[in-house]
Amino acid sequence: MVAPLMQTFVQRRVIGIFLLIAAILAVAWGHARLAPVMRHIAYLTGWILLAVCLFLTAYNARKKLPFLPLGNSRTWLQIHAYVGYLSVALFFAHTGWRWPEGWFEGILAALYLAVAASGVFGLLWSRVVPRRLTAQGGEVLYERIPTVRRQLAERAEALALNSVESTQSVAIADFYNHDLAAFFVGPGDLWRHLIDVERPTDRLQNRMDDLNRFLTPDQRVVLAQIAELVRQKDGLDYQHALQLSLRLWLFVHIPLTYSLLIFTALHVVLVFGFSAGVGFH
């Protein structure tokens, strides 16, 4: 069977890390070699760093031009990530492994590190969360979550209300009003889902187990149906929390990137505006 050679992720990672290490060593070597003979090596590393930052930002532009043959997004992301790591090395080469003392340069450096750190976090998070989502199941489009949530709430409410008539008791309806109504309406506890400990359902399940002891067989059937809806709602909240988190980290990474670029522009103006005097007489 002649199949086109497909690169495995391991191969790709090995190549990527190899190239990255090679590039970092090249930067370190170049810097160590040039620093003694180049008094103003910060100009060289600075312009390279700026070019690298602009290239990294260009990924955003690529995403806005999906119809142009500008290369695959996956290739871009790979390069974006590895060049991002490389830029950290360049950054430290530029600052000379020293934290800038002034306010402006301090903020500039902090912005850079925040953008880089959020990027690293985003990449790790993007690798971890999909596995969790897939293991959990209940795949749903993020935009359709409110619709599904409402459907579940309506079905649970209907079950609870109908139980008053069908079981001649308000036990389940009371329980629903007291313990479940709020759970079905809201999006759930974001953090608990994100860190995946002590899910809200554990608590609800205990209460339902407690209630179950005191119910008639009819009521138990209804409660079991509601319990299934609770499980589905919990799964929906889990999807919501994790899918939201996959979108929210970009609320840090992207705005700070533009802040960083603005600071960088002023940095360039200051560097040139405040170092240019009369060179020779």
């Binding site: 999906p66 119809f67 997004s73 690798r127 969360v129 999909p130 596995r131 989502l133 996959l246 979108r247």
Partner: peptide, 18 residues
């Protein structure tokens, strides 16, 4: 591959753009 998909909808937006 759902274990890699971050549900970012870049695919859908790219489709819409084209």
């Amino acid at each position: 591959n759902l274990e890699r998909c971050t549900r970012c909808d870049d695919c859908v937006r790219a489709c819409a753009s084209t």
